[in-house]
Amino acid sequence: MKKPRFLNLGDSALTLEFGDRIDQQLVSAVSAFDTRLMQEKEAGRLNGVIETVPTFRSLTVIFDPLVISRSDLQGRLLLLLEKVETDNRQKGRHWRLPVCYGGDYGPDLESAAASLGLTPEKVIDLHASQTYLVYMIGFLPGFPYMGDVDPALHMPRLTEPRVRVPVGSVAITGQQTAIYPWESPGGWQLLGRCPLALFDAQRSEPALLGPGDRVEFQVISEDRYQELVEQTLENSLDFSQFLHKEVKT
């Protein structure tokens, strides 16, 4: 594997920078090395490594410098890098997530369509016809950074970010799309809303999506949206219905 740049993130973390673009190849490289490190850690061969954080283009390795020195860790990582090949096979799950587009659910749909010179229907069609890769989870718990959005839908962030983006909002900016797992401030363009809880601290797997997952959006009606919201509140939702049935290889 091509050697990444080693950047100092304080005395207890190293960021291994594989590149500086949003690129599926880079994500594959990061993911392959992350998987390798996790295997080493689980096998008890990476004492002192606390956790790793995969991002679009880098892997941050957080360690306890009183257990493993920076130089020892760097040496171990360099050795492991020699043994890892980028695996471009698709891993992760394939989701089809319900989205109610437009109206109060997607307050920016009309203005986005107008500025793109498209009809709102065309925007929905372009957004929902793509399969997106989850590049990384971060910023807030469970927040999925996904791409790539059709070039015809590339939009800048809002000039005035919203103070309050409702939970579940499906949004775009540039080549990226995301679902807000929390109510939070935000500057992305809101097209619709997904009724599923993307993050729940009480679940055994708190984050619904993980890096490497693929996501498609399915257009649903307002009634169906409300129905799913109720089931979410009752905790009676079976998430497997939103997984693509795929032939196992």
Partner: peptide, 11 residues
């Protein structure tokens, strides 16, 4: 701005 990467407390 950079393409987002990892943060630790103290950054």
């Amino acid at each position: 701005e950079i393409i987002s990467d990892g943060i630790v407390p103290g950054a």
